[in-house]
Every structure is written in structure tokens, then in C-alpha cells.
């Protein structure tokens, strides 16, 4: 191949004005913010798992039907789904390219959205079916 210069501009001039590679620091930052928020929620989850391990379905349902348990559970599911979407996207970006990358990223988004929605819907169902004695007023 002939070594001739086809583009007289310097590499800096070529890079200038094109903006960032994809986005700025938003993706990275969102991943960290999610991680920091998931920290205390994970510790809460560990305590709850130790409290509930080995109990029957009714006990666990009664636990999940209490708003002060359902709320952090829902929050954790949403945050975890978002955090795993961001993390898996980084992995996909590193190891794939072209249409394959687009397809994998779409799959990740869809799967994480589905997990968050399914978790949320399950909690709503548990709250709806909670024993009626609890729901006076």
C-alpha cells in the first residue's frame, strides 16, 4: 500500500468538533450513584434475608405486604435493575461492536426493564392480596 497522505489535517483537527465518543461522564456517574445508594439497601436486604430465611410463604407475604418493607424492596429492585443495566452496557461496549453491540445493548435494556417491571408488579400484587384485617381506614 502506498504511504501517501490523504488527509492534510492534523489528528487534533480531525478530532475537534466531533464531540465526545458517545456521551460524557453521565453513564459512569449514574453507575456510581446507583452503587452508593445500593450499599445501604443491600445491608438492609441482608438483614431481612436473615430474618425471613426458612419461614413459610404466609410469613414472607405478610412481611412484604408492609409498606415499610415493600418500599425499600421496590426501591432496591429499581436501583439494582438500573445499576445492572449500566454495568452490563459497559461490558457489552468493551467486548462487542457494530450491529452486534446495538443488539446486545437493546437486549440488556429490555431485560433490565422487564426485571424492574416484573418486580414492581409482583410487589403490587402482594400489596393488593394482603390480609383484609390490615386494611381498615
Amino acid at each position: 500500500m502506498a504511504n501517501h497522505i490523504t488527509d492534510m489535517r492534523t489528528p487534533l483537527a480531525r478530532a475537534k468538533g466531533r464531540g465526545g465518543l458517545s456521551d460524557g461522564v453521565e453513564h459512569w456517574e449514574a453507575e456510581r450513584i446507583g452503587a452508593v445508594l445500593l450499599g445501604p439497601l443491600s445491608l438492609w436486604a441482608v438483614v431481612q434475608i436473615l430474618r425471613l430465611a426458612g419461614h413459610d410463604r404466609q410469613t414472607i407475604l405478610a412481611w412484604a405486604a408492609k409498606p415499610h418493607n415493600a418500599a425499600p424492596l421496590a426501591g432496591m429492585i429499581l436501583l439494582a435493575a438500573r445499576h445492572m443495566q449500566l454495568g452490563l452496557e459497559v461490558v457489552a461496549t468493551d467486548y462487542s461492536r457494530g450491529w452486534r453491540r446495538t443488539a446486545i445493548k437493546l437486549g440488556i435494556r429490555f431485560a433490565c426493564l422487564l426485571i424492574a417491571a416484573y418486580g414492581g408488579a409482583s410487589i403490587v400484587k402482594i400489596l393488593q392480596n394482603r390480609p383484609q384485617a390490615d386494611s381498615r381506614g
Binding site: 410463604r57 414472607i60 407475604l61 412484604a64 429492585i77 439494582a80 435493575a81 445492572m84 454495568g87 452490563l88 461490558v91 431485560a111 426485571i115 416484573y118 418486580g119 408488579a121 409482583s122 410487589i123 400484587k125 402482594i126 392480596n129
Partner: peptide
């Protein structure tokens, strides 16, 4: 760290599935 992140993501998907079966009924649970 990367591998464990992907593994916890997979496990989390299974955990939410478990929560779904808890909500669905005693047979599913």
C-alpha cells in the same frame, strides 16, 4: 469484579423471578 457483577445480575433476575412466584400463589411458590 466484572464477572461477579454479571453473575449478580443473573442471580438478581432469578431472585425477582422468585419474588414473582411468591406473589403468584402457593403452587408457583
Amino acid at each position: 469484579n466484572r464477572i461477579s457483577g454479571v453473575a449478580s445480575a443473573v442471580g438478581f433476575g432469578l431472585a425477582v423471578t422468585w419474588l414473582g412466584s411468591l406473589a403468584a400463589g402457593s403452587k408457583e411458590y
